[in-house]
Simulated scan of single mutants.
Amino acid sequence: MSHDPPRRPAGRLLLTPDDKEAPARTERLRRLGLGKRPEPALDAFAGRLAEHTATPYAMVNLPDEQGQFYAGLHLPPAAPPARPDGGTRPGVGRRLPRDHGFCPHVLARRKALVLEDVRDFPRFAGNAIVDEYGIHSYLGAPLIDSTGTALGTVSVADVTPRTWGRSGLETIKQAAGELVVRLERGTEGGLPL
């Protein structure tokens, strides 16, 4: 039995880490009343984060066993940029497969991930989010609650390379820390964001 990682048709490695915490995360999110539907308060949080970081995309990702789910999402108002071949890119929706994007890596690492230009990293350059959506930079941090469960991630992304620096890293870590407290403190009438 071969243990070689699967390869993309272009020969790029697919290195999405296993998500061993998915069952526990799904159960914890269920107990918190999260992860099944978009949350207007999380959309607003993502909007404020996008504005603060001057990025077109901001997400609150609460993945389950089926894949990624953006309970909070901020998208640019304009259509996605054209592909280099002249075609159009798909719009980002609330759900993405696990192998799209970088949030699964943040969950596996359980710490922030800073990618100023994802194309500089062979492990990430071949990700479908780069080719399909034109994402070239990413900044994300895990949402680790008081039980030690990684509930998901908070992230921002851009279609151009970005120099995030220490201030970007501190911003995303602070946003994640503040949000996870609010998620645990959530009320039936809505999230206190």
Rank of each mutant, 00 (worst) to 15 (best):
E21F: 00
L115C: 10
G190W: 13
Y70K: 12
Y57A: 05
P17F: 12
N127P: 01
R48H: 08
E39N: 15
E27M: 00
T153E: 01
G47Y: 11
D43R: 15
T171S: 09
D158H: 11
I172D: 08
N61Y: 04
L73C: 07
P6R: 09
P90I: 08
E184R: 04
R185S: 03
L32S: 02
R185M: 03
V118D: 04
R123T: 09
R182S: 13
H100Y: 11
V114A: 02
E51G: 15
V181K: 13
L73Q: 07
A22K: 04
G140C: 06
F121Y: 12
A10V: 07
L179H: 06
G91M: 06
T153Y: 05
A58F: 08
T187V: 15
V180H: 03
D4E: 12
M59K: 06
A175P: 12
P90A: 10
V154M: 12
L29T: 06
V130Q: 03
A176M: 05
G140N: 03
P63G: 05
T53G: 06
L193T: 14
V154C: 14
R48W: 05
N127L: 04
P5D: 01
R109S: 01
P77E: 06
T149L: 10
L169R: 15
A46L: 05
V114T: 13
E27F: 02
D4L: 15
T16E: 15
N61E: 14
S137V: 04
H100K: 03
R98C: 01
I144E: 05
L193E: 02
T153D: 02
H74I: 01
P5I: 00
V154S: 07
E188D: 15
F45R: 00
D64I: 01
D43L: 15
H100W: 05
V180G: 10
Y70V: 06
L62C: 03
P104N: 08
F45E: 00
T149Q: 07
G11A: 09
H52M: 01
A79N: 08
G186M: 04
L73S: 02
T147H: 05
V156A: 14
V159I: 15
N127S: 04
E132H: 12
I172K: 09
P80L: 13
R83S: 10
A157W: 03
N127V: 00
R48A: 08
L62K: 01
R123S: 12
L32G: 02
H74W: 11
P6T: 07
L32A: 01
A10R: 14
P142M: 00
D145A: 15
G91N: 09
I144P: 13
D43V: 15
V180I: 14
A71D: 02
P84V: 11
A108P: 01
P5Y: 00
E132I: 01
G152T: 04
P17H: 15
I172R: 11
H52A: 14
D117N: 11
R12E: 00
T55H: 08
L96C: 03
